[in-house]
Design a protein around this nucleic acid. Structure first.
Lengths: 119, 119
DNA sequence: TCAACACTTGAACAATTGCTCAAATGTTCA
DNA sequence: TGAACATTTGAGCAATTGTTCAAGTGTTGA
């Protein structure tokens, strides 16, 4: 990021004090990244529906596929994403793998967001 | 989505009752979509940092660019996304456009998510 | 040991994303 | 009016995403 005129506005900062306040109260980079990462995982309709489905208790991959009306494969791919981000847990029982919410607390985000979405 | 064996598991559903419960308590499609859409917008580090910066009050595009250390252009592009999703509001004063949070309530999502991220 | 089955995985693909660069707007002030 | 400047916009691009298809793994029971 070069420090020339094309890059930012030409004064050092239009409102230096406001910039300083904003800068000093900003989150550490890693927290910003983690925050965005979590929201990004939540920001897909398929994954949203999987998390909603698991609200009522554990389900196997086949069950989830039926609830969503989607292929086993794509559900499994998304379950992997959710697993990798510690949003769901898997438990194998014979041939069947059961999934549960790793931390139902995460659904608090759904509630808050729904309030916003519903205005 | 064809209804053949390659598509889902071979029984109608492994746990029909659980599937029925999950299905009947699921969100309407449009709410799922809106929910995911909101999280998706929140799920980018640049946009996260913009929203955090605006927490301390209104800033112009140039200010935000300074706080983030990013080009005016990319900040403006992201502000457009935030505007289109009603997360920020713009107010023009002469040559300068000031941005504010459209609904600071949205930052409640940050707080809740930060708790989760921080374990 | 082998077929059946629940699930996972990898490659391939179109679609979407976030950035940069350059050009266009809109506003002020001389 | 025209130059200066804050911001927006559009095209172009590499990178990422979500799905499908086909092949793979792991477990059960005959």
């Amino acid at each position: 990021m070069p420090d020339d005129k094309s890059y930012t506005c030409q004064v050092r900062a239009l409102h230096e004090d406001a910039v300083e306040v904003a800068r000093s109260s900003s989150l550490p980079d890693d927290e910003v990244f983690e925050l965005a990462r979590l929201f990004k995982v939540l920001g897909d309709p398929t994954r949203t529906r999987i998390l909603r489905a698991l609200r009522s208790g554990e389900l196997c991959v086949c069950d989830i596929s039926h609830v969503l009306g989607m292929s086993i494969s794509s559900v499994s791919h998304q379950l992997r994403v959710l697993r990798e981000h510690n949003l769901v847990k898997a438990r194998r029982e014979g041939k069947i793998v059961f999934y549960t919410l790793a931390d139902p607390h995460v659904l608090d985000l759904h509630e808050t967001a729904l309030e916003h979405v519903r205005e």
